[in-house]
Design a protein around this nucleic acid. Structure first.
Lengths: 177, 177
DNA sequence: TTGTACATGTAATTGGTTACATGATTAC
DNA sequence: GTAATCATGTAACCAATTACATGTACAA
């Protein structure tokens, strides 16, 4: 599922990263996968294509580099036009509210299709998965206390906690009934 | 962006609705737009194509109906195979946890690219939008207290509230600093 | 020498959206 | 008579994913 970002979201992300450090596609995608996978998943060919589109539109420039005998790199740098475009995207992004979609929520609409104890067993699995995710991300928030990634990580964890609390409440009510 | 649901999510939703009431595509999409827009947005041609795929795979059957002189309807009904498929999709959906993607969160990663007071002004807009959404949905939760839609609406509102609280906290901290 | 990391790219397929086309009915 | 609702469907376009292709460097 193409989640994480639409066209504008992708541009915002790619340009924002290029603004900090000019890099080549491979490194960019590598960084996204390592550190921002929870924010956006951008497959390699998609990123390459999008970088090319940004170049075509004048938002970035490319320069081929070669270090020793390693494969050549196409290093992208943001242009003044790209800066302006980025700033507009950022302003739009910050001021609007596009509610998140919860792909998992669809099942909640059909809870009455399964016997209650099966529902409970399944949702306890889900709860465990949320708790595992929390255990993974809570330490990261602490680590990134003073870095640019802090707000976005904190926001993510807050939603994980909201999900955890909501689901625990649902289970309590179901067991009580 | 294809949000709301991937292929499996779509099937789950369409089959679940057809399980309750056999209907035709137009009515189905109409219902989704009226009552479940926050859950999934499914464009008409997409829904028609997906219903055809479900038919091709034997999960539903179609029968053409005509009421008076109105345009013919292709009324879909779920098959036993479709029921089984639905149950599997539902079990998978309930037990897994696929974290939501927050398209708006990307901007949070670049807060330091704009002067703090502009960030605050923009985020106050966002906060107002969240509050408007809350005002719209909180009454709905109360209305649907005893209907199938209750959990999914409640879940949605809980996340809206988490978002509101988080953003208000961020603004307080920014103003304090 | 076998596999993994580095680095880019193309081609085939799939799937979604937009816009277009049709035509009857009902309400103003 | 003109606009909105009902009802389906097609065609053109775009975008994303998967799989494939290439080649060096380095580590086990």
């Amino acid at each position: 599922m193409t989640i994480g970002s639409d066209g504008a979201g992708r541009d915002l992300l790619l340009l924002g990263l290029l603004r900090r450090w000019g890099t080549h596609g491979y490194q960019l995608v590598d960084f996204l996968e390592r550190h921002l996978a929870f924010l956006a998943d951008l497959k390699r060919p998609t990123a390459y294509a999008q970088l090319e589109r940004l170049r075509r539109d004048g938002h970035v420039t490319v320069q081929s580099e070669r270090e020793g005998n390693r494969p050549q790199r196409r290093v992208y740098k943001i242009t003044p036009g790209g800066e302006a475009y980025f700033m507009n995207l950022l302003r739009e992004n910050l001021e609007r509210f596009s509610p998140a979609r919860f792909p998992d929520a669809i099942g909640l609409y059909f809870l009455d299709s399964l016997p209650p104890d099966e529902v409970q067993a399944l949702l306890r699995e889900r709860l465990a998965a949320i708790e595992a995710r929390l255990a993974e991300f809570r330490p990261k928030v602490a680590e990134h206390q003073h870095l640019a990634a802090y707000p976005v990580l904190d926001h993510y964890v807050v939603h994980l906690e909201a999900d955890r609390a909501w689901l625990a409440g649902l289970l309590r009510r179901q067991e009580g009934a």
